[in-house]
Amino acid sequence: MKTALAVLMLSVCTFANAQEIKTAERDLADEVGSIDLKAGVTKNQAGAIALFYCERHIGGCGSTDAPVSQGSNWQITPRTGTDGSPDKDKILVGKHSGKVSWSKGPPLIYFRW
């Protein structure tokens, strides 16, 4: 009887503690919503993605400039420090790849479309 009770308790505890693992990519997808990568990331979506990246991966980042179209990417300048100085490195958002990168930070892949 004690063994059966122990097995039951262990099963319930394991099930109750099961949680979805949140990754930066999942957080980004939850915040920005669906994007049709075939049609391409819009300017507004690129701006939201860059701000998300800025807030989580660039120390001292306070805001971002408007996205600028550069070939297959959107380029967004992060503003850092108390004076909001433009960073020399741009955040890149792939228009059709969903890849988000900044030279000194981790790359992210936007996967919900």
Rank of each mutant, 00 (worst) to 15 (best):
I58A: 00
Q75Y: 13
N44W: 03
A24Q: 13
A48K: 08
P86H: 09
D36S: 06
A66T: 12
G84T: 03
S69R: 12
K104I: 05
A6G: 00
I109C: 07
S101A: 12
Q75F: 11
K99V: 14
P106R: 09
V68D: 08
V68H: 07
Q70K: 13
N73F: 15
V12L: 10
T77I: 13
G105S: 11
G98Y: 01
G33E: 09
D30P: 02
K38C: 03
T3K: 08
G105R: 06
T80D: 02
G47L: 05
N73S: 15
P86S: 07
S85T: 12
G81F: 04
W74Y: 08
E55Y: 03
G62V: 06
G62T: 08
Y110S: 00
V100D: 09
I109E: 13
S72P: 11
Q45Y: 02
Q75I: 13
L8I: 04
Q45T: 02
P106C: 07
T14D: 04
K2M: 07
S103F: 12
E20T: 15
L37W: 07
D65V: 08
G62I: 08
A24K: 15
E31V: 06
Y53P: 02
C13K: 08
I21T: 15
R26M: 10
D89K: 11
E20D: 13
K22E: 11
W102G: 02
M1S: 15
G60E: 00
A18W: 15
N17C: 10
D30M: 11
P67E: 01
H57S: 15
A48T: 01
S34H: 13
V7W: 07
G94Q: 14
D83C: 04
S85Y: 12
A29Y: 01
T64D: 01
K22M: 14
E31W: 06
L5P: 01
S103C: 07
D65M: 12
T64G: 00
V32P: 02
G60T: 00
I35N: 00
E55C: 02
Y110A: 00
C13W: 09
W74K: 08
